[in-house]
Design a protein around this nucleic acid. Structure first.
Lengths: 343, 343
DNA sequence: GTTAGCACTCTTTTGCTATGAGTGCTAACC
DNA sequence: GGTTAGCACTCATAGCAAAAGAGTGCTAAC
């Protein structure tokens, strides 16, 4: 649906004013905000048509107009000025994500926290997916007479470690056996090939050694699972209280939603575009029906690997936050790529 | 201040009723809740005296009474029935904290999460303090041509690892040198002895090797810092919305307070008693002036090492939650002790 | 197509009047 | 002297009506 230029100008003004104030916008208010030489009556006519088209709505007869989700959508797709990011904001973001010698988890946790502070929204991010990763290296570090730490390194640079415990005292022959198993069965294996069936075959093939090796083998498999699982990093839950009225009764549900990693990683993985904006009910999740999500995906070595996003009320400041989220996400991607390739 | 038995009975009834309903309690309501054979007028007289003594207050003249912080304090110290925990609740708690082969961090994170769900409050816990810990073991695991992972194990069973990066390609002689330094300078050292001054002396004494060894040495020191730092585990922030009216305007500040680890670990470390209850303003932190904190300390090998607590509104159900927090904390202490000694 | 004007709608505010919960006080009672 | 019935008093709350105000939609004129 194409709108006339004037209608677009009016729609944009309504959206922007409402985003700023949270109050319904009337024709007179609009008149002073708009550099347009028509009367309020004309604006009223236009607004009535915009309402008929589904872009605006009235909370009640004697109130101004507020954008519908479709209104926001039209605004984001067609009207929003994509002004380039302020240099000072760029610097600020760069300072916010710079983190030397840190793990991907730490980098993303920091990024979420920073993004939340910067945008006054809740921020989420997912760690790189381990889908196409293989096992690059496995090491065993004894830490006690019967316990040791297994360290697993994947081809995507993820390092996971776990303490595991044997039923008998450790000795060098056991450790040697462990390394043999690792060399012959695990190295180079895609993470997702390590399922229960594989393990059972492996254990069966070990014969007499099976009993002592089981804790180690299963620890490796748990590590592989962990390395594959994308983790969700959260920041700024407290910001939900900032826009409490906008979320209405979904505020509690939204907070609760944020605790659960699984739906969030679904949400973020949902779109394959470079970046994406989901407005209100466009999100599949009921808990997000009063929220908008701005998300972007970061690449590691050019490969789309994870996402960073913010969750705010539908009257979130799209125009200025979208570029910020994108820029930050790109930076994080670069940082992660760099961290990975430095090894 | 000693109260008459009847006053105590009335105060207890007011506290319990208010905790349950959140509404001010009047003399007639009290009459039916109490198995006492006096008239409402007598109760009024008693309540007026309790108010004069500072244990009760009136939101306004025509309302019932609500407990003051002093009222809660008297209730907790003298009146609260310390009925033993229900067996079914015990089972529930035991199921909630059981976690095999997990790190202390994971155990405490799970415990916080579980406690929050169980009590409808926000829950916090601190990892064992590393104050008296020494370095028990340090290992180096190469993970790339120039990077390796350093694993540090303390006498208190804390395991920390960190990837570190050298400026030149790794070779076996460097690794050997590293182990020499570790053996001669780090093993057995108390964690808090590793400060910048020690490091500088150490680096100075290395002569020509200093340059290549610095990344490793400083990584070890960072790990020692990390191992010493108590971490704060959070659970159930969303529960703050549950008692939003009780927190009033401090709700946002409370949520924000929870994000910051430092003040929480101060809060929890504050009391040296076995367990402690802080009511409203008794907490030193302004953000907690409408909150009560129930906390207990867990022991590892009989040594007081960390804390678990819940933060709720002042009208929290002390009588039933205090035993729960204590029981859970004891269990976690046992679990951590066991985990530690299994190595 | 635009606009001035006006009637109309509906929320919000204000003021007023019950209503009722709950108190404090007094005087009588045991 | 403690207890209690009775009653006047206070004050939040609910309900209602009137007034104010914001904003609209429509019509008729430009």
């Amino acid at each position: 649906m194409e709108l006339s230029q004037r209608k677009e100008k009016i729609l944009a003004a309504v959206v922007e004013h409402y985003i700023k104030t949270g109050e319904p916008v009337g024709s007179k208010t609009l008149l002073s905000a708009l550099d347009i030489t028509v009367s309020s009556a004309t604006i009223r006519n236009e607004m009535a048509e915009l309402a008929a088209l589904g872009y605006l709505e009235q909370p009640h007869t004697s109130a101004g107009r507020i954008p519908t989700n479709e209104g926001y959508r039209y605004y984001v797709d067609n009207l929003m000025g994509v002004r380039p990011l302020d240099e000072s904001v760029k610097r600020q973001i760069e300072a916010g994500v710079s983190l030397k010698n840190a793990s991907p988890e730490a980098i993303l946790a920091k990024a979420s926290e920073f993004l939340a502070d910067m945008t006054d929204c809740a921020a989420v991010s997912t760690t790189p997916s381990g889908e196409n990763a293989t096992i690059k290296r496995i090491e065993f570090v004894p830490v006690g007479t019967r316990t040791g730490m297994i360290v697993l390194l994947t081809s995507t640079g993820v390092i996971k470690s776990k303490v595991c415990r044997s039923d008998v005292d450790l000795n060098s022959s056991m450790i040697e056996k462990f390394y043999n198993i690792v060399k012959s069965s695990f190295l180079g294996l895609p993470l997702d090939d390590i399922d229960t069936a594989t393990l059972q075959t492996l254990v069966a093939s070990m014969g007499a050694d099976a009993l002592t090796m089981i804790p180690f083998v299963s620890a490796v498999s748990e590590l592989a699972q962990e390395a594959m699982r994308t983790m969700v990093m959260l920041g700024g839950q407290s910001n939900i209280l900032r826009y409490r009225e906008d979320y209405g009764t979904t505020a509690y549900e939204l907070m609760d939603f944020l605790r659960r990693g699984e739906p969030i990683s679904q949400l973020l993985a949902n779109s394959k575009e470079d970046f994406d904006v989901k407005i209100g009910g466009e999100n599949k999740f009921k808990q997000l029906e009063n929220s908008s999500v701005i998300m972007a995906h970061y690449n590691i070595d050019g490969d789309n690997r994870g996402s960073i996003g913010i969750i705010g009320p539908t009257r979130i400041d799209y125009a200025s936050l979208i570029p910020s989220v994108r820029y930050l996400t790109d930076l994080v991607g670069e940082l992660l790529t760099q961290t990975l390739n430095e090894g």
